[in-house]
Design a protein around this nucleic acid. Sequence first.
DNA 1: CATGAATGAGAGTTCATTCAT
DNA 2: GATGAATGAACTCTCATTCAT
Lengths: 203, 203, 203, 203
Amino acid sequence: MGYDMGEKSVQKKKFILETARKVFMEKGFKKVTMKDIVDACDISRGGLYLYFESTSQIFLEVMKLESEEADDVFSDSITEDATAADILILFLREQKKELLRKNDTLTQAIYEFYFQNKLSKKDNILKKQFDAAVKIIEKLIEAGVASGEFYCEDCMGTARNIMFVLEGLKISAQTIGITAETVDREMFYILKSLGTAEEKAEL
Amino acid sequence: MGYDMGEKSVQKKKFILETARKVFMEKGFKKVTMKDIVDACDISRGGLYLYFESTSQIFLEVMKLESEEADDVFSDSITEDATAADILILFLREQKKELLRKNDTLTQAIYEFYFQNKLSKKDNILKKQFDAAVKIIEKLIEAGVASGEFYCEDCMGTARNIMFVLEGLKISAQTIGITAETVDREMFYILKSLGTAEEKAEL
Amino acid sequence: MGYDMGEKSVQKKKFILETARKVFMEKGFKKVTMKDIVDACDISRGGLYLYFESTSQIFLEVMKLESEEADDVFSDSITEDATAADILILFLREQKKELLRKNDTLTQAIYEFYFQNKLSKKDNILKKQFDAAVKIIEKLIEAGVASGEFYCEDCMGTARNIMFVLEGLKISAQTIGITAETVDREMFYILKSLGTAEEKAEL
Amino acid sequence: MGYDMGEKSVQKKKFILETARKVFMEKGFKKVTMKDIVDACDISRGGLYLYFESTSQIFLEVMKLESEEADDVFSDSITEDATAADILILFLREQKKELLRKNDTLTQAIYEFYFQNKLSKKDNILKKQFDAAVKIIEKLIEAGVASGEFYCEDCMGTARNIMFVLEGLKISAQTIGITAETVDREMFYILKSLGTAEEKAEL
DNA sequence: CATGAATGAGAGTTCATTCAT
DNA sequence: GATGAATGAACTCTCATTCAT
């Protein structure tokens, strides 16, 4: 579509993306066909092709929306007077929610998509997100160490470790299944390693 | 196939599984069709159906073979006079090799398979393998603590943490890509947390 | 469109026909879709349907324009003091130019159109053009014979023969390809058969 | 199909080609879809793809069969004691039959195919056939001149002229339509130009 | 008049699965 | 047991044509 889309078209495109998102959450990526999305949106075959030319393109745009929304949620939740520990716990709590949602998540679809599309480094949004998350956690830990909330010798190593643990939990949730207890224990372990073993219940 | 198969059949079945394994390593799970396997084995379409009725069944049997072989490798490599640290390092070294092989691994296929077939807990080989590995690592750490090689307050927590880190590295290798350095740093971090920060180079 | 069209509409219609002509020259007839013409004209899908209801209709009108223009060109080029041989050579020279333009011609589109639309004799513009051309050439030869320029026993037969040779060259140009030399030789042969074997170079 | 086909497959392939030939004669080339051929052969969609992967491939093989058969017909019809004039007349008679069959011919399909597939010179079977035919006619005329049957100053030129006339008639038969009389007149004209104006009726 | 979003029929193609030999 | 031809359901994608605005 080289031409500008009117307001109506923009809304329809958004509607398709939101509907497709649900389909991807249910079925993952590979299994989803253009017809699945057509049916879910209750539009015509050709109609979908007016907006998107493949499931890959749709999925990429779904992910773009997704990460924008995620950014919003995260920045919203950081208040001025929150301590580093507060924010970290908040972050982990969000992750836990996500982890336990299992079938209500794009996780599986994202993994499948990346299996199918071995993207070059610079196109790899997933990698960018991962690296960005590591950076943020690192800063957080540093701030916590500075304020005396955390104890940590190797902030970057710990940040990376946290992210790999979270990745491990994420994929495990999809394959072997994990319980809330498992997540709690891991997160408790993370906090403990920072010297802040607070109450488990808080998550 | 409720009936006995002759020697010839057994060999053919094994041949199919070994060939299929290569196909799964190349293409993952979902992309593989019965025809792919038929072509790779250079047998007839109908012939394959005499032994297996779906790619899922074939894959399950490939995984069964795989884990049997893996067990052998691991127990072979444990000598009588090896210390806990030796064995752990050996284990991590094996994991590293596996992680960096990327395209020569069943990892992606396994994940894809589990995405598609949400198995009940008792059928979930992956979970069994995960739990077994946690147990072994835990015992290892306990042994190391007993012998003074390691320092660790929460052996089980640490074992679990190690496994989730490994899982995180495994999936990351398939999606965002990881370098040998990344693996080294994580493994170094693991050892350091046990109080055994030896030389990185050793892996 | 039974109603009168304003000046604006007439111009737009002409614009569409001229643009469509280029499209037909590039792609032939069958391959051209309404969308191709819509895109080339940079108008709306529905807009095109206001003027034309099918590619066939458009093509027919393009051909109508085409033959009107061709007539003009031909009558323009006949001056009062030109001899029969002059005019014939002029005609053949025009044909040669047309033949060698190959991809810049409606020829292929015309053939495709007539393949698809087996028109009744009275609707067949192509036939009318062919017969008219035969007539003109016949008159020309007769004039040449009268003036002593040509020698010919059977003017009509020769005229027909010339036209079929030209048709043969035209279709051959589109299918097996012809060189300038081939055309020259054929035209030289035509002139020679009329006893006017002038210089080949003249064409 | 990289493997050898059994006797059965060969027959089925031939059956498909023969059926497809009829379809091409009816509809030309472009209009014909894989489904048309599937329906005509009364086989399954997938079944056709076992033998051919496109209408182009099918058409090429149909043409190959066609030209093989044509060669056979031609060489069969040349007897030892036939004169050059006999053979030429025989040839023209065959052409006439072909020309007047109109809708029972591959001509249109062949032209359409070559419009769509602008083949390089060496792949262009049509060109090879054309050149071969010119050669044969030339030899025939030379033989006729030698035996005193024909009079001809430029055998090659005449041979080419004959072929272009035949091409012109062929395409005209498809577009503007021609009558038996038209063909007779042209062929009579050809023979007359060779000094052998025999009886028209003979064709 | 003009627009362009929407429709849906239909073409191409692939593959798991069956079945006569 | 083994073969491989055959089937047909399901997918992708394109386009003429319509119609509300």
